[in-house]
């Protein structure tokens, strides 16, 4: 937490009345563009990611597919997904996708996070986890429409791709972009990346990929990691990339609807009790001890025993 950020446009669990420092917001929105039609699945990006971020995940096991490691983890922030697709004529097609955080414009993780400042969104669009503030509840996992964040067993904190926020803040591209040998990953302003994507899509269409298109899902306000897909009409083919990702209505209901209703519930309950007490006054016993004098028991203990014995004959059960 050495360098301070003054360009935070959204901060988890933070009241809109008390925003995070955001004076330095004169920034371009950035984006990473991943062209799956150029990717060869070399996994150089995975290595570069581990290198730059000082991550050394445990060496896992081969589970019968090329995906290695088999899934994203707290120490593997990007994984190349390999899907085999066979068309009607029996032609095999490899569908490769570099999976990782999409850096949504409307991040579900940030909406779900209950810890103030544990997730922030910078003016350039990067969504980053401030791990010191993380409490390990895993709500970000429930909030994410892409199933990206992972909790680390070592420290019980959530991790994901930072879009190399540390590199980007000093004018460099993310490590995966820098290392990609085929040029499948590009980085720049979001506008530039959309232009680049448009020219690539045009080229793919001219080569017969009628379904080619840009993946920049508007259900989450667009993303700062975008794909050029050869089958953009069926993104699910690329390892279940959601066609219309959006923050779950359950998460919205919990964070947007229940919160104000709950606050009103508290105010109404406390105000009702207060008004009742002031209006009616305490409920005291009218007359002191009506029968105590004649039927005074010699000892409380005996009364207790008698009362206990009577318990079994409580009439309620018979009614």
């Amino acid at each position: 937490m050495g360098m301070q950020s003054q360009d935070i446009i959204r901060r988890s669990a933070t009241n809109g009345l008390t925003p995070a420092p955001q004076a330095r917001d004169h920034q371009h929105e950035v984006a990473k563009l991943i062209d799956v039609s150029i990717c060869t699945g070399c996994k150089g990006c995975q290595v570069a990611c581990s290198e730059w971020n000082d991550l050394r995940d445990e060496v896992g096991h081969n589970v019968g597919v090329y995906d290695n490691p088999a899934d994203l983890t707290a120490e593997t922030w990007t994984v190349i997904r390999f899907d085999e697709e066979e068309d009607e004529s029996g032609t095999l097609e490899w569908l490769l996708r570099k999976e990782g955080c999409m850096h949504c414009a409307e991040p579900g993780c940030l909406k779900a996070c209950p810890s103030p400042g544990a997730i922030v969104q910078f003016a350039n669009g990067i969504v980053d986890f401030q791990s010191e503030q993380c409490i390990g509840c895993g709500y970000c996992i429930a909030g994410c429409p892409f199933d990206v964040p992972r909790i680390n067993k070592k420290d019980n904190k959530a991790y994901k791709c930072t879009l190399c926020a540390d590199r980007v803040s000093v004018g460099q591209e993310p490590a995966c972009v820098k290392t990609c040998p085929t040029g499948a990953i590009s980085f720049g302003s979001k506008a530039e990346m959309k232009d680049l994507a448009a020219s690539r899509i045009e080229e793919l269409k001219s080569r017969g990929h009628a379904g080619a298109g840009l993946y920049d899902p508007q259900g989450v306000g667009g993303t700062h990691v975008m794909y050029v897909l050869t089958h953009a009409d069926k993104p699910e083919m690329y390892h279940r990339l959601p066609k219309d990702p959006h923050i779950s209505p359950f998460v919205r209901g919990w964070k947007e609807w229940l919160k104000p209703v709950g606050a009103l519930g508290f105010i109404a309950t406390l105000a009702g009790a207060f008004a009742h007490y002031v209006g009616v006054g305490p409920n005291t016993v009218d007359s002191p001890d009506p029968e105590a004098a004649p039927a005074k028991p010699p000892e409380g203990k005996e009364t207790v025993a008698a009362a206990d014995a009577a318990e079994g004959e409580h009439p309620v059960g018979r009614e």
Binding site: E291, P294, A295, K296, P297, P298, E302, T303, A306, A307, A309, A310, E311, H314
Partner: peptide
């Protein structure tokens, strides 16, 4: 429960 029990004991 209370009154009968109390009567019993007294």
């Amino acid at each position: 429960e209370i009154a009968p029990a109390a009567k019993d004991t007294s």
